[in-house]
Amino acid sequence: MRPLIILRPEPGAGRTAARAARMGLTARLCPLFEARALDWVAPSPGRFDALLLTSAQTVRMAGPQLDQYRALPAYAVGGATATAMEAAGFDAVTAGETDGSAIAARIAADGYRTVLHPGGVDTASIEPGPLTLHAIAVYAMIETAADGLNGLTGGEAVLMVHSPRAGKRLSALIAEERRGRLHIVAISDAALAACGEGWASVQAAERPDDDRMLALARRLCE
């Protein structure tokens, strides 16, 4: 069985590894980034008519200031983000299953126009359409040393890539001549494209969630 290498930061890496273990897969963790909270000034909730989060990390890193926006209609990209928001006290979160641009279109269709979008320093671009998006950075993803990556990728393996930034860093860390026995499972087409070429195989999940990624990875690992 090929090992599964999980490159996402904690706490998501541990959750993915636990799911993989329940599927009988051999998971190894090598986060390429770690999240660090930033100081941020929370704008008045009265300025906005909706809230959009594109990462569960935002819920963890934003701190108690995020509570000010519980009364706003809440939207999320992906089930994991929606679940984190609901656990933090947001009611009736509307989850989109593709990307930020798709959920922005849903927000606009629901009649909202001025949207607060707290998130990371580096986030995927969103096509806002008629929306006015106020993006504010509440955390940054910092590169880890990733010391164990070379040892984990010395033979055949399946690598899970959860973001375009992780794909870009993976491409920089592993030379093309070492990629022929490594398989990529990415969370999106954008994350897949960032990995570059030369891998044994590449696949992107139909929707951005762990269950779909792990379903693809399982077939490759076995």
Rank of each mutant, 00 (worst) to 15 (best):
L29P: 10
C30K: 12
L32M: 08
F33S: 08
F33C: 11
A35C: 02
A35S: 14
R36L: 09
A37T: 10
L38I: 00
L38Y: 11
W40C: 12
A42G: 08
S44G: 10
D49N: 06
L53A: 13
T54Y: 06
S55P: 08
A56T: 06
A56L: 00
Y69N: 03
Y69C: 05
L72G: 13
Y75G: 04
Y75D: 05
Y75F: 15
A76N: 06
V77W: 11
G78A: 12
G79N: 08
A82W: 08
A82N: 12
A84M: 03
M85P: 08
F90K: 00
D91Q: 15
D91F: 02
D91E: 14
D91I: 03
T94S: 10
A95K: 00
E97T: 11
T98G: 00
G100Y: 08
A102V: 11
A104M: 08
A104E: 02
A104T: 04
R106V: 14
I107G: 06
I107H: 05
A108V: 06
A108Q: 11
A109T: 11
D110Y: 04
G111A: 05
Y112L: 00
L116Q: 13
H117G: 06
G119K: 03
G119S: 04
T123K: 00
G129M: 04
A137N: 04
V138H: 14
Y139V: 09
A140T: 14
M141S: 14
T144G: 05
A146K: 02
A146L: 09
G148T: 11
G148A: 10
E156K: 03
A157E: 02
A157T: 06
V161L: 04
H162P: 00
S163K: 05
P164F: 01
P164C: 01
A166S: 15
A166T: 15
G167S: 09
K168L: 02
K168F: 01
R169L: 14
